[in-house]
Nucleic acid binder design. Structure first.
Lengths: 241, 241
DNA sequence: CGTCGGGTTGAACCCGTTCAAAGGGAGTGG
DNA sequence: CCACTCCCTTTGAACGGGTTCAACCCGACG
């Protein structure tokens, strides 16, 4: 079996391994991990990877495409907790749980590397660096959540939208993509949900920013014209409050 | 040294060990952990346990008292990320980092058990249950943050305050304390900051709830009169939106 | 008794929501 | 190739809840 595994499934050969795992991971560590990773699987748009209540079996590293994670609230409404791009890992919020507490849905055609949680747990007993990495990405998510929480609690609609755009831009930079050309894989409704705003408010904020000449908006494609001025608006809002 | 360690520092003898660690932890595991735990240290009101930028050396389990954790935003303002009570563990958002990204401040006279992060990391290589526990409490914090984020994003002031009170009540129940007698260790300003509201709004919400006969407010002491009706208001708000 | 800090109450303003309608682009069928 | 439709997005106008600014209250402490 393993002899026939396509080269593409070996993390070492994957251009994203420095994102999924620390750059410091050596060949040995990557090979050990590769042995756990199943053949990347493809998901169509709107297909769910896992769903609330499913038994928790794996983490998933995004290989291509994009997806959203959401929690279903008691009331039945959906709260989108995050959008994930290639090189990012989903399922951390279910670590240590027997069942999934969230749902992951592909926003477009997406391929994922499956990291079985049993294997990951065991391997991280042997590779301190892997355990440290898991702690690190989980704590990073925690810290990012704090910032997002402050955003939701305090920031104006414009600042929320700008923060999101700049965050996306920064993540593209990590993947060595252009920082000023964004393609939003999610619709306005999902974006609004994630930012805690009404759909119309997001649209208005984008239009306003476009009117001010800071960005160009064309459907799901957004071009950042003046990144510095965008950053200033975020800072200005923080300073004023 | 260890021969003279007071019995009180042995986790096995501490009434809170089922909160700090899973109830399933056996005597062996608790003893291994106890060897790591330094003498509980005391902090006065407003004293900081660790501060943004400090080197990250330990997690801390609350033994008595209460404290808040906060992040300092670029603008210089403080966002309070959580309040912690006996049996709860702080510092998880710094796991895997070399330096603290948050600040922990005692809200009253507080004693903490220090869990050196090096020791914890190494021990969790040997005790899969400990590693699993760490993953679990981190993922639990993640999931709680998602709920809080939704609260901040969508919920009315009243719902935010009620959710906080009910959450506090639930945590008291875990510690086998009365669920209807709350003592808020933080001031209105901290509470408002944490809930993403203006100080005045929190005060108004509490007054309103008191007028409606659902709670009794006397400074920092709050008595819950009709827990069910409080829960209904939260559910009602969710349903309406 | 006076002062001080935290908490409460009051009134006006502002931003985001809500409801409503129009605009636009992709896909389908003629 | 165009016309039609559907869905997503944009734009408009009025409403409402939370913030803000301001005054007041109250218990603690000197």
């Amino acid at each position: 079996m393993t002899a026939f595994r396509p080269a593409a499934t070996r993390c070492l050969d994957c251009g994203l391994h420095k994102l999924c795992f620390p750059p410091s991971f050596d060949e040995h560590a990557l090979n050990r991990i590769s042995q756990l990773v199943a053949q990347p699987s493809a998901f169509a748009k709107n297909e769910t990877v896992y769903r609330l209540g499913d038994s928790m079996t794996a983490l998933y590293a995004v290989r291509s495409g994009a997806l959203k994670t959401s929690v279903l609230l008691p009331s039945g409404e959906e709260q989108i907790t995050g959008f994930y791009l290639p090189g990012e890992v989903i399922g951390l919020d279910n670590m240590g749980q027997s069942h999934c507490a969230s749902t992951a849905t592909a926003l477009e055609k997406t391929t994922l590397c499956e990291l079985p949680v049993n294997g990951i747990s065991q391997l991280s007993q042997q590779l301190p660096e892997l355990q440290g990495h898991l702690f690190q990405i989980m704590s990073t998510e925690l810290r990012q959540d704090y910032q997002r929480m402050h955003l939701m609690a305090q920031a104006s609609a414009e600042v929320r939208v700008v923060s999101f755009l700049l965050g996306l831009s920064a993540r593209q930079q990590q993947r060595h993509l252009a920082t000023n050309e964004l393609r939003l894989s999610m619709g306005r409704a999902d974006l609004a949900n994630h930012l805690g705003l009404a759909l119309e408010t997001v649209s208005r904020a984008l239009s306003q920013l476009a009117d001010d000449g800071l960005i160009e908006v064309s459907g799901k494609s957004i071009r950042i014209i003046h990144a510095e001025q965008l950053a200033e608006r975020v800072a200005a809002d923080c300073h004023s409050s």
